[in-house]
Amino acid sequence: MREWSNREELLAQVRAQMHDKRYDHTLGVAESARQLAIRYGADPDKAQLAGYLHDYCKCWPVDKMFEILVRHDMPTELLEGEKELWHAFAGAIVIQSDLGITDPEILQAVRYHTTGRVGMTLLEKVVCVADYIEPNRNFPGVEEIRALAQEDLDAALALALGGTMQFLIEKKKTVFPLTLLAYNDLISLKRENRRV
């Protein structure tokens, strides 16, 4: 892995990929991820780095992302699904090839920050929730997710994913299967923890 001890150099690389509003969001996610990592026992440096990198390809043209995804044999359900998800999967590929980030935990946190997945790691949960609650976010229910994130990371993530699915259904858009599976996994974990 390339050494990214020079924060300014890394941020310049990230900044070059996006517009001002997206960059402000990125900084907010990185700081929120660091704080959540400290609170829940994940690696704060990895969380912050994943936060900086999570939207690396977000502002790229969809045809460029599509080309990357096809070249790396991404599943048909992703390629035929909502294009808003592509940046996460393309981003995990690009930050490895272009920036030399090889840490699998960081790559997975970037890859699954929009969809979630079954069996998410603590770092993946931290980055996913940070993406929802960073200070620049303003949508109905965000305050509830922010408050819950200080008490129960899994519950906050389940609430966030549930809200995303509800939004997609109301807009008559498809729900990516991993998101539904991630939500069900989190709900099952909660149920099992109550039994113990």
Rank of each mutant, 00 (worst) to 15 (best):
Q108L: 03
S97C: 10
T76C: 05
D43P: 06
V29D: 08
E31G: 03
L36V: 02
E82A: 13
Y112F: 13
I101P: 09
E143R: 14
I169T: 04
P140S: 13
I95H: 13
K58I: 01
T115M: 07
T179S: 12
E82V: 11
I95M: 10
E77Q: 15
D20P: 10
S5R: 15
E9A: 10
L123A: 15
H54F: 08
K83G: 06
Q150M: 10
H25V: 05
R117K: 13
A50C: 00
D45L: 13
R34S: 12
C59L: 06
T164E: 01
F89E: 12
L168S: 04
L180E: 07
Y40S: 01
T102D: 10
L161T: 02
V127M: 01
W60R: 08
D131E: 05
A156R: 00
I38D: 15
Y40V: 02
T102I: 08
L181P: 01
G119R: 10
L122C: 00
L153T: 02
L161M: 02
V175T: 09
F89K: 11
Y23R: 04
T114I: 10
L107E: 03
D55V: 14
H19K: 11
N6M: 15
F167Y: 02
W4Q: 05
Y23E: 06
Y40G: 01
F176S: 13
H54R: 00
K64L: 11
L123Q: 11
I95C: 09
E31P: 07
I93T: 09
V94P: 06
Q150D: 10
S188Q: 12
I133M: 06
I101T: 10
Q150L: 13
Q17N: 12
Q96I: 05
N138V: 01
E143K: 09
Y183T: 00
R39K: 11
D152R: 04
I95G: 08
D43A: 05
W86N: 07
E192C: 03
G41H: 03
D45T: 07
K171E: 14
K64Y: 09
V29I: 08
L168E: 06
R7G: 04
E144M: 12
N6Q: 15
P177H: 06
L36F: 03
L122G: 02
A33T: 04
K21A: 06
V94C: 03
V14R: 07
Q35V: 12
S32V: 10
V29H: 08
A30Q: 15
G41P: 00
Y132D: 08
G141N: 03
V142A: 05
S32P: 03
V118W: 05
I101D: 13
E192Y: 06
R111M: 11
I187C: 04
R15N: 13
P75H: 09
T174N: 02
V129N: 10
P140Y: 15
W4K: 06
K83D: 12
F89I: 08
G141I: 07
T26C: 06
Y23H: 01
L85Y: 15
E124C: 07
I68W: 09
F66L: 10
E67Q: 15
E77P: 07
S188R: 02
P104S: 08
R117Q: 12
T179G: 04
N136L: 14
